[in-house]
């Protein structure tokens, strides 16, 4: 859940139409049309990715007159399915995925169950990945994959490239070769398994 209190505003005089903003927006809310950038203000989740990367400082973040509360109510889906999806992604439903918005795995799973087909949809529906824009892409991709959704990165965009390795997938040879140098693969795998299985606090 996120209270979106900012919105991106483009200074058209300054914009050179380079499309950087379009390539980094995690919810595809900004687009270059006829050489100038345009913000879909209803879609914008106020993450400031565009403002932080525009090479000519053409974007500023403004306070919204009316903030928008975005989020998915986990009670509107079958919680058994949420548990199943999170389990498949090796996540505890209650673990926090996005540190900036406090979005938990269950909410992302619920968004997927309600039709999210890509990280962009997930971010648009939940607000996750519209804070730091960095740390939560992998668990989002893991949850989409667990739902058998094959998302493809936005064409020409830099939003994301692909899911990467998890500790469960580290090859045996790599574990053996490197474990004496302070890399605790087996132990951390056990730890993450315990987290995955930990009892839920919030319900039932």
């Amino acid at each position: 859940m996120k209270l979106v209190n900012l919105v991106a505003v483009v200074d058209l005089e300054k914009c050179i139409g380079c499309k950087t903003c379009e390539r980094v927006c995690p919810v595809l809310a900004i687009k270059v049309v006829d050489g100038k950038s345009q913000v879909d203000t209803e879609r914008c989740r106020g993450c400031a990715a565009c403002e932080q990367r525009c090479p000519v400082y053409a974007i500023r973040m403004e306070k919204r007159k009316e903030p928008i509360l975005v989020g998915v109510d986990v009670d509107s889906v079958d919680y058994g399915k949420v548990i199943e999806l999170c389990g498949k992604a090796k996540l505890n439903p209650e673990q926090v995925i996005c540190f900036c918005t406090g979005t938990r795995a269950e909410e992302i799973a619920a968004a997927i169950l309600m039709g999210a087909k890509s990280p962009e949809d997930v971010s648009f529906m939940t607000g996750a990945r519209t804070g730091c824009k960095v740390e939560c892409i992998q668990p989002i991709l893991r949850l989409l994959e667990a739902a058998d959704i094959k998302s493809v990165p936005p064409k020409g965009g830099w939003q994301w490239y692909g899911r990467t390795v998890t500790v469960w997938e580290i090859p045996e040879g790599v574990r053996r070769k490197h474990s004496s140098r302070g890399f605790y693969f087996d132990e951390d795998e056990k730890l993450l398994n315990r987290v995955k299985e930990a009892p839920l606090q919030g319900r039932r």
């Binding site: 995925i97 824009k133 960095v134 740390e135 939560c136 892409i137 992998q138 668990p139 893991r142 994301w160 490239y161 692909g162 899911r163 990467t164 390795v165 998890t166 500790v167 580290i170 790599v174 490197h178 302070g182 890399f183 605790y184 693969f185 132990e187 951390d188 795998e189 730890l191 993450l192």
Partner: peptide, 18 residues
């Protein structure tokens, strides 16, 4: 971001440095 997220979310606190 994919790599940084791997470090902070996919590996565990002591395997991440790999």
């Amino acid at each position: 971001i994919e790599t940084r997220s791997t470090y902070h979310q996919n590996m565990g606190p002591r395997a991440a440095n790999f």
